[in-house]
Amino acid sequence: MDRRTFIRVVTAGGAVAVTGTLWQTAAAQPAARVLPGSPYGPLRAPDANGLALPEGFTSRVVARSGRPVKDLVWHLAPDGGACFPDGDGWVYVSNSEVPLIGGASAIRFHADGTIDRAYPILRGTSLNCAGGATPWNTWLSCEEIFRGRVYETDPFGGGEAVRRDALGRFKHEAAACDPDRGVVYLTEDESDGCFYRFRPDTWGDLSRGTLEVLCGSEDTTTVTWQPVPDPQPGVFDTQTREQVDAARHFDGGEGCHYAAGVCYFTAKGDGKVWAYDAVDETVTPVYDGGGTLEGVDNITGTAGGDLYVAEDGGDMEINIITPDGVTAPVLRVEGHDESEITGPAFSPDGTRLYFSSQRGASGFSAGTDGVTYEVTGPFRH
């Protein structure tokens, strides 16, 4: 099934919702029955690293907060992340969600998975939560603070980070690029946050453009966009989410991921995974609770259409949402009850999944016990 006609099925008494042109047809049909269980099978007992994984999968720890990774001391509170191809290897970047000294760091891996080097790519920023990769291979690191900014960074460590004020000043969470329409989608981590898109004047150059906010009633799936009058408000000016009366609000915007004409984004306050269909200009939930996924947060996906959603709390799991509506855990971090899973990202070949437990086993809010993992196995492509 094509992802743009993705059927969402909630396992506990949910209804069926469809993005795209099949909405009216599907709404008239009875709820479908979801097949139980993960396509990878059940989770086994925790391994030596405390990860419960399906058969055929293995894990390793690649970094711990406050400890060296090659010549770099790995940052505290690891958060949003992404992978980038680099010659015969790849790079995994990770934000640091701590105040004032946040920033982001990167680990480069050789073709065989061994670590080549680690290095900082952004310094001196605050509460860098999530972000997103661009098609031109830069990393957008987002500040989750009042009047926060977006910084465009070089994941390969060769250039200086650049502040991108045109993307707005608000409590940024994540970013996802839509090369088909030449826009960047942005989420806002507020209880009445908005969903934005940035239209650069020139695709690939984020220095100038128009910030727009998604508008529409919660009673309908159809949405529109309106420009934000003042994308860079001062301390005492009206915040971006309050500048357009018709703006639609979401309870705690978190991760977002673009694929095949749809931008998926999560809202932790209502526990939903939303889908904005950029072709049909509709917003519908593809998951609205009642299943195995709790505390929706960071999200990523594969070329085959699977979504992977990390939990902030919940059971400390990463859940898969398949194109045919199956929602199931693919891994669980045991013994980290006061932490959250952050930064899920696949290596370029799709065989390795990177992510972090932001606060680790101690759960200390400063993130001094953060752990960054790699899971290798027969992931669906």
Rank of each mutant, 00 (worst) to 15 (best):
F364Q: 14
H381V: 09
N128L: 02
H336T: 12
G253I: 04
C83E: 07
T202L: 12
T282K: 00
Y264I: 03
G216P: 04
W139G: 13
A361F: 01
N298D: 14
H75F: 09
I101N: 15
L35A: 13
K171Q: 15
D116Y: 04
R169P: 04
H381F: 05
G87K: 00
G102Y: 01
A118L: 09
T222E: 13
T220M: 03
G20T: 03
P68Q: 13
Q358A: 12
D245M: 12
D154P: 01
D116R: 03
R352Q: 04
G271E: 04
E152C: 08
P85E: 12
V244L: 07
Q243T: 14
V333E: 00
R380W: 02
P179E: 09
V213N: 01
H249G: 03
R332H: 02
F6R: 14
T292C: 09
G80I: 01
R123F: 08
I318W: 01
Y151F: 14
R149G: 10
A31F: 04
V279Q: 05
S126L: 05
R169S: 13
V326D: 10
R117M: 05
D324E: 15
R44N: 13
V98M: 11
G124V: 05
G66S: 11
F236P: 01
T58Y: 06
N128S: 04
G102T: 07
S126R: 02
Q226I: 04
R117I: 06
C177I: 15
G168P: 01
G168Q: 07
A246Q: 15
D154Q: 11
P78D: 14
D71V: 08
W136S: 03
F84C: 10
E173F: 08
A278W: 00
C142F: 06
R117S: 10
D270L: 09
Y308E: 06
R4Y: 05
L186E: 11
A63L: 06
G168A: 07
V375F: 01
V34E: 11
K171F: 14
S207R: 10
K70R: 14
V326P: 04
W274R: 04
T327H: 12
F198V: 02
S217W: 08
G204W: 07
S217R: 10
V223N: 06
K272W: 08
A52S: 15
V235N: 08
A28V: 04
V262E: 01
H336A: 14
M316R: 15
T322S: 13
Y308M: 06
C83V: 13
C194A: 15
F364C: 07
D237G: 12
D88C: 08
I101V: 14
H110T: 09
V150W: 02
G66K: 00
E173T: 10
R8Y: 11
E218W: 13
G363D: 02
F379Q: 13
Y92V: 12
A328H: 00
T302E: 09
D165Q: 12
T300N: 03
D288W: 11
H172G: 10
I107P: 01
D2T: 12
D251M: 06
P233Y: 03
G124F: 03
G89L: 07
D71M: 11
D324R: 09
P99A: 15
I7H: 05
G168V: 07
E190S: 11
W203D: 11
T282W: 00
W203N: 02
D71T: 12
S339I: 07
R197C: 11
V162T: 10
P99G: 14
